[in-house]
């Protein structure tokens, strides 16, 4: 091959890559790098332009009580939503994978929360949680005679109330992945185990669950990312309150950036979030790698 044609191919290749690269750089890489740079500068105010201040923003972050509070909240939120939504997703998938009458209806019913926008979901749950008139108060009041309670307005329960909404929203989505994975497991494996003396429970723990591991890894990584990413419903339900009881990291970043206009500090928090997410994702892959069997 001549020099000329090698060069032609090279140009061709880059031209083909160009459109995607332009968008990727414009909307992902450049903002990310800018964010990192901004986190080392002060927030420009009025005529005072941004100054390089080194790690000052990071020092501020470490001493910021609200930052630690929302981080802690986020941890609880993750612990509260991830295992529960995964367990529910598996249970629902097992259930709709069985032969049962009207199973496509049940599948659809379980999947519905997923197709609803989170804001719409939040509005539905707003009604469920409304003190006195809401669905929950109506039910608990009717059945047990409990007094009206303000689940969203109480610092003790606000975060848990949000966790419930998130689990409700996410479990149906994860179910779809588990359903697909379950259908890929040959029935003969279950039959072989049955013949060898395994009951339903043993079949699940010793055969089905280990074979679902690749799906669990995938869903787990997604769930972790979602637990830091999905905050839309907080705006509707609690607006982070009361007293930051239900604020999560990303919600706090939004507040700092677009309510307090401390853009540099928001950039710092964003960098912290990115580092945290990368560490979690990497850690998860290494942790699961030894336990996951790809066929």
């Amino acid at each position: 091959m001549s020099r000329m044609s090698i060069k032609r191919e090279w140009v061709h290749g880059w031209l083909l890559l160009l459109p995607a690269m332009v968008f990727l750089f414009a909307f992902t890489h450049i903002p990310a790098v800018t964010t990192l740079i901004n986190s080392f500068f002060s927030t420009p105010r009025g005529r005072r332009s941004a100054e390089f201040i080194g790690l000052e923003n990071y020092q501020e972050m470490l001493t910021d009580d609200v930052f630690w509070k929302v981080l802690w909240n986020n941890l609880w939120y993750a612990i509260g939503t991830i295992p529960l939504s995964i367990a529910l997703a598996i249970a629902m998938a097992l259930w709709v994978n069985d032969k049962l009458a009207g199973r496509s209806f049940v599948r659809m019913a379980y999947f519905t929360p997923t197709v609803l926008p989170l804001i719409a979901v939040a509005n539905i749950w707003m009604f469920f949680y409304t003190p006195s008139f809401g669905l929950f108060d109506q039910i608990t009041g009717f059945l047990f005679g409990w007094p009206a309670s303000n689940y969203l307005g109480n610092p003790e329960t606000a975060l848990n109330a949000i966790i419930v909404v998130t689990v409700w929203k996410e479990a149906g989505f994860f179910m779809i992945f588990y359903l697909a994975a379950l259908q890929a497991i040959p029935v003969s494996l279950k039959e072989a185990a049955q013949i060898e003396g395994a009951g339903r429970w043993t079949v699940f723990w010793r055969i089905t669950f280990p074979l679902l591991m690749p799906t669990t890894l995938f869903v787990g990584v997604n769930a972790v990312i979602n637990s830091f990413r999905l905050v839309d419903h907080i705006f509707i339900l609690t607006d982070g309150g009361p007293d930051n009881a239900s604020a999560l990291l990303l919600f706090y970043i939004y507040e700092v950036a677009f309510r307090f206009w401390e853009t540099a500090y928001a950039a710092t928090l964003t960098v912290a979030l990115l580092v945290l997410l990368s560490l979690l994702a990497i850690g998860q892959f290494f942790f699961f790698d030894r336990k996951v069997h790809y066929k």
Partner: peptide, 10 residues
């Protein structure tokens, strides 16, 4: 003994 062997892959 199954036609597809049905060995537990993990």
């Amino acid at each position: 003994v199954f036609q597809s062997y049905a060995l537990y892959p993990h």
